[in-house]
Amino acid sequence: MSRPGEDLKKAVRRKASFGQTLSAVAWSFFGVRRGKDHENDMAKLNPVHVIIAGVIGAALFVLMLVLLVRWVIGSGVAAG
C-alpha cells in the first residue's frame, strides 16, 4: 500500500512538456478530445503544469472577452 502523497509525487515527475500541456488544455477549452488522446494525456501530463496552463488559459479567455466588449462598445455597434 502506498503512503499518502506518493501518488502525487509520481504525478509531478511526469515527463510531458509544458507545450504538450498547453495543447491538451487548449483542446479541453475547445471541448473536443479523442478518448485515446485523453487517456494518453492522463498518463503523461504533470498536474502542476495543467493547473498553471488552465489559469493562463482562463485569464487569456477573460482578457479576450473584455477586449471584444470594449471594441464593440467603442465602435458604436452596441448603440441601438
Rank of each mutant, 00 (worst) to 15 (best):
R3E: 15
K36W: 03
G76Q: 03
S17L: 14
N46K: 00
D37T: 04
I56T: 12
L63K: 08
G31W: 01
K36A: 13
A59T: 15
D37H: 04
L67F: 07
R14P: 09
L60K: 15
A26S: 15
W27E: 01
V66M: 09
E6M: 02
V72I: 12
V66T: 06
H38T: 08
V32K: 09
I51E: 05
G76I: 01
I73L: 15
G74I: 00
A78W: 03
S17E: 15
S28T: 04
G54W: 12
P47D: 12
M64C: 14
A78N: 06
A43S: 11
R33A: 13
L68H: 06
N40T: 05
A79S: 14
A26M: 14
V77E: 08
H38C: 10
A79H: 08
L22P: 04
A59G: 11
S17P: 12
I56W: 03
G31N: 06
R70M: 12
A11G: 05
G80K: 13
V66C: 08
V50I: 10
V72K: 12
K9Q: 08
V69H: 07
H49C: 07
M42S: 09
D41F: 06
R34P: 13
M42F: 00
A59K: 14
S28M: 08
G76S: 10
R3P: 01
S28R: 07
S2D: 09
H49R: 06
G57N: 05
A16D: 13
G35K: 00
L22C: 14
G74H: 07
V25K: 10
L45K: 00
V48W: 01
L60M: 14
F18W: 08
L67R: 04
A58W: 05
A78I: 01
G76M: 07
R3L: 13
K10C: 14
S2I: 00
A11C: 10
A43F: 01
I52Q: 07
L68E: 03
S28G: 11
R33Q: 07
T21Q: 13
K10A: 15
K44I: 00
V25P: 12
R3G: 14
L45T: 00
H49T: 03
N40S: 08
A79W: 03
V77P: 06
V62K: 05
V72Y: 12
G57L: 09
I56L: 13
W71R: 12
S28P: 07
R13G: 11
A53W: 01
R34T: 14
E39Q: 10
